[in-house]
């Protein structure tokens, strides 16, 4: 069983939902990434989503765009990101790590090299924003051979046929984008999410994580009550952006810890 599947199984037995924080690798500086990953786990994260910096993050709002720009100032590329995962694995062999990013850095590295390097680094899942199922058959096949899950997005505009199509290729979990727009946009519509998830569940047996627009512990708690996982990105990246370097880890831990407690309240 993959680390992701094991994680969800364990959480299910504890009647808990997964907390999945997203941070951009290399933001604010390369040396901070692995300490941030460890701090997120200590504060209660179950799975880590690590953003691969890209020059043209089309699906991201200004907050995550800026984080990508900060990382790129340090020339952080896909190879470096795999290096961070490898380093993280020296002290943590249980927390799943999912790489999230755009197609072109993977295109530049080549599918075969990427799949093999990701496996040896200890990556558990890959979510490529601009590889929809119809354009990612080859990569998904290669990743599967390397024991890596391919995570796909679904959105409020995904219709039934689309959900089935994604379901045939996805593994690990489904990432439900809870609003129309880019990351970090307006607040989430709980009613809409609540109405869509049963439709997805009727076609896909994987756990469903919900992200985009979750900005505080109370919203996270509400989302956790109807989903299997809560993804928080822009809010954390904002904290990284606004924190003094020496307080960054502490601030992130407080924020994530608060969300964890709210999600676990009964």
């Amino acid at each position: 069983m993959s680390r992701i599947a094991e994680t969800f199984k364990k959480l299910q037995s504890q009647k808990k939902q997964a907390l999945i924080p997203f941070v951009t690798a290399g933001d604010p500086a390369p040396a901070m990434t692995v300490p941030i990953m460890r701090a997120l786990v200590s504060a209660g994260a179950d799975i880590l989503e690590l953003g691969v910096p890209f020059s043209d993050p089309m699906a991201d709002g200004p907050t995550i765009q800026r984080s990508s720009e900060r990382a790129l100032k340090h020339n952080v590329g896909l190879k470096d990101v795999l290096g961070f995962v490898r380093e993280f694995r020296t002290s943590d062999t249980t927390t799943p790590v999912v790489l999230m990013g755009y197609a072109n850095p993977i295109e530049a590295m080549g599918y075969v090299t990427f799949a093999a390097s990701a496996q040896s680094a200890g990556v558990d899942g890959v979510l490529v924003v601009d590889y929809p199922p119809e354009e990612s058959k080859d990569l998904v096949g290669l990743l599967k051979k390397c024991g890596i899950d391919s995570i796909f997005l679904l959105s409020p505009t995904s219709e039934e046929g689309r959900i089935e199509q994604v379901g045939r290729m996805a593994s690990g979990y489904i990432y439900y984008v809870s609003l129309k727009g880019v990351t970090g946009a307006a607040n989430i519509d709980l009613k809409e999410v609540g109405a869509k998830l049963p439709l997805i569940r009727s076609h896909i047996k994987l756990p469903i994580g919900v992200g985009f627009g979750i900005r505080d512990a109370q919203t996270a708690k509400a989302i956790a009550s109807i989903s299997d996982a809560v993804v928080i990105g822009s809010r954390l990246v904002q904290e990284i952006e606004s924190s003094q370097p020496d307080q960054l880890i502490g601030n992130l831990s407080t924020l994530v810890g608060g969300i964890r407690r709210a999600m676990d309240e009964r």
């Binding site: 929809p132 354009e135 689309r162």
Partner: peptide
Amino acid sequence: EQGHFGPYGGVFVAETLMHA
């Protein structure tokens, strides 16, 4: 049908744009 010119073209966008 899928917008390919040989290996080029296609539809490489986030799920949020697929419906549109």
